[in-house]
Structure formats: structure tokens, C-alpha cells
Design a protein around this nucleic acid. Structure first.
Length: 599
RNA sequence: GGGGGUGUAGCUCAAUUGGUUAGAGCGCCAGCCUGUCACGCUGGAGGUUGCGGGUUCGAGUCCCGUCAUCCUCGCCA
């Protein structure tokens, strides 16, 4: 007989009755009736009920039947009488009468309950992540993660992609996020950087003649956390295709994502091909480049209708070149005064000066601003929004870019509050035709996205078009308002690269010194290539229906990029620093906070 | 770095307008119980209300500071 088990805790059925078995696992719950004790023993696979007769010799050796200790039982499988069957357990038709017991690992009193699904302070969970991961929900999420990643590998291999590794210790590349740096011992004063993505390596692999590459790639960016952004590291399904167009990338990703989302979720998924929305249209209609298409509300431009009106707050904005945007919300006129007040407060919270509204209710227009508007204007607005009695139109007036941004937030909030969002669907779209350049804060032309992207229209457009009108073969894929990934057709021509950088104010020497590998490689015959890298953690977040990315990561860091279980980051010995020729110069106020995990 | 929320027993939470000895459920400890499966019953321990200061006859409650944590803006080629 195996030292620890002949069966798992999820395995035994009524057909096994009469056999002698051995199982090991964690004490999930104890029900002590004095004359008889029931223990639910749990492992990765399930729960099995063990019945203990207190007259057994091992019973006296146990001080506490404490939950979460690991035990090994040897005993007989008994078919339960019909009244005692537990239909909620896979093993509920049987139980094991214990003949022998071995304590494998005793547990102290646990800081939070494993067997109950109750909310619990997150730092406590992170400090005891090994206990937290025993809990059903997190355990299931990580099983899902494993299955999804395994399936992604299958699908990618099936599409003809090769999985390849790229370096983790590499060089810092300009632009992008802050790097994590690793000091070199051999080269005093020099540093490796952890890759923010394997971007340049995968392009080099294409140039090396590999046709289709993929990798579940770790990416390291030193940026502050968000609910959907874990600090430190995250994973991408990184891929690149040689001799490929934008459309080729879309087709592969539509097949792979549609397969994974339909296999691992019961939600309804868009049929392929997914919608394609030009960037400018997305900004106009949704006020964002990652629209949640489950929300039926859209932004409309009402600027002209307010140009000559008596409502100075709006006409003034129009006169100074700004926009008035409107959102028509059907059937929303019956909402309470509180609802409208809270919407105004929300709009102010996201940077708006206010939030106007017209409420067509019981045959009249109820609104603080209606008295400033002519009947003709009211009719035109009504026509624009396609509204009638019972509907409401909301208005945002501001500098055009700001108005769209605020409008995007108001659209989200209205969608939530009016419960317009169907939580049982996945709505995908591609955002295409991103601008190649934009103006930075100093009104200087700068790459708006990825400097490696191929400009649409080639050299012709680079030479002849206003830089701000040049589009890139740059695309995002968005699901339910979550940006899953950016990708691009790459610029594989050294001449186009130099010209593209020149427009952004960098001369040839910058390209040569900052991207030496690509610049050199592309002069030896580069294939046209394109790629993308969907975020694996975010895909799993969507599939697991988790609002927080930490719920799909085994060992996440907290918001301050600390691992509370491993106490990372931590101080190191002075000899380690000496070996690396490093000296620590702390900021004035942080002596106390420099120790991790202390209290 | 900025804005917001939260912080009360091991855990989740309550405590009326600032007013008695800060409560409940779970967990823990002791006892009882032979069919439970969130077992049940009886009893018990457990609190510097994050920390520091202030206002007040009186502070868990109000004010200031600080720390922790989450959300968010900046940031994320």
C-alpha cells in the first residue's frame, strides 16, 4: 500500500465499498458527536468523509482535531445508508471508517477560515497566501488559469506557431514604462533591465527566419498598480508572424480568443470576425479607445446646436472652440432627483464643470437649462438624440478632448447605474487606425504609441502628410471595456524607421544607438512582420469574472509592489552591495519604511 | 506625488445626536452529545477602537497629524 494514499479525496464511489483504502489530506471540518466523529478530509481533488470511533487507539493521541492539519487515514470504504447520502459531494455515497491514522502536519489555529467563503482583509490573505490558495474560489481560479494557458499553447501550436524563449536579463530600452534594473557584477556601473516585453527579440526572431513565434512571456514594468494591473510582472501571449498583414493577425487571434472564451465560459461571445472600429470613431462615440460595447449608450456631438443659445456656460465653450457632447438615455426620466444630483457629482469627480440634462417627463421638459433654449433648439436636440417623452439627454461642455474623456466616464457610469450592461456576454472589438503621432504637453510631435509600428501610406505619407494625420498599422483588441492587447504591423525598413524617428525629432544616431539590434538586423533582409500580445492575466480575469487581477495570480504583490509572504523587496547584505559596486543613498524621510514587512 | 474609501476581539461586522461596564456571528478554550455533513447544546477567555496629539464634564464617534490597506489620477513604447 502506498505510504500516503491509494486514492485521492475526490475519487471514491459506491462501487469502491468493501475495499480497504488510504487517503491523505487537510482537515476541512470536524463534527464531533462525542460517541462518533466525522471529519471531511480535503485535497486538490475533493472531499471525503472519514468516520472515527473514539474507542480507536489513535483517538487518544490527538489533542485537537484542528482544521487544516494534514492527516493520513487508512480504513474501509462503507456505502452510506440512503438517508445519510450527501448529494452535494461527489464522494457523498460513501464514507471511510478509520482504522489507522497518521498526523502528517499539524496546523496552528488559522488566521482566517479556509472552509468558509467569507471576505477577509487582503494583506492578511497575502501574508498567508498558501492558506488563501486552499480556499475554493482562489484554488479554482488558478486551476482555470492553468487550463487556459495549456489550451492557449495547444491552439497556438495548432496555428503553426513555435514556442520560443527570450532573455530575462536584457538591456534597458528607451521609452515605455520604468525598467526594473539588475546591476552587473562583471561590469561595474552597468545594468541589465528585465524586459518590459520581448518586443525586440521577437522581431529579431522574425528576421532570423522563424515564421511564427509565440511565448507565454513574462513582462516586467515598474508602474503603479490598478485593479486590472498587478505591479512588477504580468504575462502576455506574445506572438509575431512573418510575411503577415494586419488581417492575418486578426484572423489568428479571433480563432484563438473565440475558442478560449467559448470553451472556458458560459457567456455569449461575439461571432468572428469581431467588429473593427477606427480609433477616431471610438473616441467620438465612446470617449475612449477601450469601449465597453455591452453599454448601448453613445456620445453625440451637439456643439452646433448650442453655438447661439442663451445658456452662456455652453455657448461660451463653443465660442472658445470646445464641444458640447450629449448622451441620450432612454426611459431614464423617471429617475429620482437624487439620481440626477449624483450623476452631476460623478461628472464633477471626473473633472467636469457640471452635467446638464434635459428630461422629457409627462409631456414637459424638466431641466435647469431648458429656459435658456428655444423651442427650435429643443426640437433639434430631441431629433438628434432620437428621444421622446420618458427619455433624458445629458450634456457635457468642455474643451473637445476633455469633453470626450468626461463623456466616456459618464457613459460608463450611466450604463452601470441604469443597469444597461449585460453581464452574460463578451463583446469584442478591434480598435484600428491609431494615429502614428500626437502632440505632447509641449506641443511637440511625439510617437503616440509604438515607434516600431509601420506608418500607413509608407514613405509617401511620411514625406507629404501632416504628421498628426498619419495613421499607423497599430491596433488594440478590447473585450467588455478591458484592453486585452496592443499590436502592430512592424516597420521593418531601415529607411522608413529613420524617417519615422526624424519626424518625432530623433536623428539617425538615436535609432542606431537606442535600437542597435533591430537597426542592424533590418539591413540584412527583414521580412514584413506583424504581431500582438494579449494579456493572459486579463483574459483569465474576464473568464473567472473577477474584478481584481490579484484573484487570478498565485503570488501577487500588493499595491505598493511588495510580496508580503516573501518580504520582497528586501534589504541585502552590505557585501552583496560591495560586490556590485553599489552604494545606497536613502531619501531623507524613508528610514522607517525601508524595511519590508515590519510593523 | 495627488484625490477618495476603509481601519473596533484571531476573522467578518454592529455600536442612535458625543453619554452606563464597546456587542453579535464565526473561530478559539472547557464540558455534554453515536449519523453529522455550515452538526447541535452549555459555559468561558479574548479589546490601548491602527498610532500620536487636540476639542470636551465626557471621544469608537468631532478636529489635526501619522501609518496601513484598497480604489483612482498621474504613469503604463
Amino acid at each position: 500500500m502506498h505510504q500516503y494514499r491509494t486514492h485521492t479525496c475526490g475519487e471514491l464511489r459506491k462501487e469502491d465499498a468493501g475495499t480497504t483504502v488510504r487517503i491523505s489530506g487537510w482537515v476541512h471540518s470536524v463534527r464531533d458527536h462525542g460517541g462518533i466523529i466525522f471529519i471531511d478530509l480535503r485535497d486538490h481533488y475533493g472531499l471525503t468523509q472519514v468516520v472515527i470511533d473514539p474507542s480507536k487507539s489513535f483517538y487518544k493521541g490527538v489533542d485537537h482535531w484542528r482544521v487544516e492539519s494534514t492527516l493520513c487515514f487508512t480504513g474501509n470504504v462503507i456505502k452510506r445508508i440512503p438517508e445519510a447520502v450527501n448529494p452535494r459531494l461527489d464522494t457523498g455515497a460513501i464514507e471511510i471508517t478509520a482504522e489507522e491514522m497518521v498526523t502528517l502536519g499539524e496546523s496552528k489555529v488559522i488566521p482566517f477560515q479556509v472552509s468558509k467563503d467569507e471576505e477577509c482583509n487582503e494583506s492578511l490573505r497575502l501574508e498567508h497566501r498558501f492558506l488563501d490558495m486552499r480556499r475554493q474560489k482562489l484554488h479554482d481560479n488558478l486551476v482555470l488559469r492553468s487550463k487556459v494557458i495549456s489550451r492557449l499553447r495547444e491552439l497556438m501550436t495548432g496555428e503553426g506557431f513555435m514556442e520560443m524563449q527570450t532573455p530575462i536579463l536584457t538591456s534597458s530600452s528607451p521609452e515605455g514604462a520604468r525598467d526594473y534594473l539588475v546591476p552587473s557584477r562583471v561590469h561595474p556601473g552597468k545594468f541589465y533591465a528585465l524586459p518590459q516585453a520581448p518586443q525586440q527579440f521577437k522581431q529579431l526572431l522574425m528576421t532570423s527566419g522563424f515564421d511564427r513565434y509565440f511565448q507565454i512571456a513574462p513582462c516586467f514594468r515598474d508602474e503603479d498598480a490598478r485593479a486590472d494591473r498587478s505591479p512588477g510582472e504580468f504575462y502576455q501571449l506574445d506572438m509575431e508572424l512573418a510575411f503577415a498583414t494586419q488581417e492575418d493577425v486578426f484572423e489568428v487571434n479571433e480563432r484563438v480568443l473565440h475558442a478560449v472564451f467559448s470553451e472556458f465560459s458560459d457567456k455569449k461571445i461575439d461571432e468572428t470576425p469581431f467588429q473593427r472600429i477606427p480609433y477616431l470613431e471610438a473616441m467620438d462615440k465612446y470617449g475612449t479607445d477601450k469601449p465597453d460595447l455591452r453599454n448601448p449608450l453613445v456620445l453625440q456631438d451637439a456643439t452646433e446646436l448650442f453655438r447661439t443659445c442663451d445658456f452662456k456656460a455652453f455657448s461660451g465653450v463653443v465660442a472658445s472652440g470646445g464641444s458640447v457632447l450629449t448622451i441620450a438615455a432612454k426611459g431614464c426620466a423617471g429617475q429620482s432627483r437624487k439620481f440626477f444630483d449624483e450623476m452631476i457629482k460623478f461628472a464633477q469627480g471626473v473633472g467636469s464643470k457640471g452635467l446638464g440634462y434635459l428630461r422629457w417627463n409627462e409631456g414637459e421638459v424638466q431641466s435647469p437649462i431648458a429656459k435658456f433654449l428655444s423651442q427650435e433648439t429643443l426640437d433639434s436636440l430631441k431629433n438628434l438624440g432620437g428621444v421622446s417623452d420618458g427619455d433624458v439627454m445629458f450634456f457635457i461642455a468642455d474643451e473637445s478632448k476633455v469633453a470626450r474623456e468626461i463623456g466616456g466616464h459618464v457613459r460608463d457610469e450611466l450604463g452601470r447605474r441604469l443597469e444597461l450592461i449585460d453581464s452574460n456576454v463578451f463583446k469584442f472589438c478591434w480598435i484600428v487606425d491609431f494615429p502614428m503621432y500626437e502632440l505632447d504637453d509641449n506641443r511637440k510631435v511625439e510617437f503616440s504609441h509604438n515607434p516600431f509600428s509601420m506608418p500607413q501610406g509608407g514613405m509617401d505619407d511620411l514625406l507629404n502628410k501632416n504628421p498628426l494625420d498619419i495613421l499607423a498599422y497599430q491596433y488594440d483588441i478590447v473585450c467588455n471595456g478591458v484592453e486585452l492587447s496592443s499590436g502592430a504591423v512592424r516597420n521593418h525598413s531601415p529607411e522608413l524607421m529613420i524617417k519615422a524617428f526624424e519626424i518625432a525629432g530623433y536623428d539617425q544616431s538615436v535609432v542606431e544607438s537606442k535600437f542597435p539590434a533591430l537597426y542592424k538586423a533590418f539591413q540584412f533582409g527583414a521580412p514584413p512582420h506583424a504581431g500582438i500580445a494579449p494579456g493572459v492575466d486579463r483574459i483569465i480575469m474576464l473568464l473567472a469574472d473577477e474584478p481584481n487581477i490579484r484573484e487570478v495570480i498565485a503570488f501577487p504583490m500588493n499595491q505598493k509592489a511588495q510580496d508580503l509572504l516573501m518580504s520582497a523587496p528586501c534589504e541585502v547584505d552590505s557585501h552583496q552591495l560591495r560586490e556590485l559596486y553599489l552604494q545606497v543613498k536613502l531619501p531623507k524621510r524613508s528610514e522607517e519604511s525601508s524595511t519590508v514587512g515590519g510593523e
